[in-house]
């Protein structure tokens, strides 16, 4: 089996937003939609021990994704490889999933005639991977700090498996029980 996950190494992220730009470019996003914002917190701490924290957000591709459970048409669905995506042939733009997502990862656009009424979100670049099975999401390819690592968690040899097995990682709002598939290495963490 394949289970795609992404690791966000906040020790390496410099908050440059290249990933947001790359995503916008690949997906031709209108101005009111962003799939992967980078949230800046800080400055924190006291001189000289100050730091700024960058948290790249994205669809968590939850194992128990509430958006797929609530979808009345079956448009929101999960691939066997863990990718949560929306079939635009079935989506009717009811926005139930937008309400259901605890991470705010989905929205509909009111600006662009392109896919205007549909719920939209990150698909781990499902289209790129369909085109070429070796391809990675565009944000991962773009990240010059190598702060995003994408791979198959069921493959013990993969980079993501090695990282998650050896370094302290956290997942956002794990207590909701959605089993998010994005693993963060905190900026001041990374030990085990």
């Amino acid at each position: 089996m394949t289970r795609y996950v992404m690791v966000m190494d906040q020790r390496r992220c410099i908050g440059c937003q290249s990933c947001s730009v790359a995503c916008r470019t690949w997906n031709d996003l209108p101005m009111d939609i962003v799939y992967n914002p980078v949230v800046t917190e800080g400055v924190k701490g006291e001189w000289p021990h100050v730091h700024v924290n960058y948290t790249p957000l994205i669809c968590m591709h939850c194992e128990k994704a509430p958006c797929t459970l609530c979808c009345p048409t079956g448009a929101s669905q999960k691939d066997d490889d863990g990718t949560v995506w929306i079939d635009y042939k079935k989506c009717m733009g009811c926005k139930v999933c937008v309400q259901a997502c605890p991470y705010g990862a989905r929205d509909t656009s009111e600006m662009s005639p392109r896919l205007e009424r549909y719920a939209r979100k990150c698909t781990f670049c499902r289209d790129r991977r369909q085109m070429n099975p070796e391809a990675k999401p565009y944000c991962v390819d773009t990240c010059h700090q190598k702060a995003r690592i994408f791979g198959d968690l069921d493959d013990p040899e993969s980079e993501v498996s090695r990282i998650i097995g050896s370094v302290e990682t956290v997942r956002l709002m794990e207590d909701f029980g959605t089993e998010p598939q994005i693993y963060y290495i905190p900026a001041l963490g990374g030990q085990r």
């Binding site: 635009y88 042939k89 005639p113 392109r114 896919l115 205007e116 549909y118 289209d127």
Partner: peptide
């Protein structure tokens, strides 16, 4: 044949 709303004209 089935319409593909992910490409132009993005609207079945």
């Amino acid at each position: 044949l089935v319409p593909d709303p992910t490409r132009y004209p993005y609207d079945p």
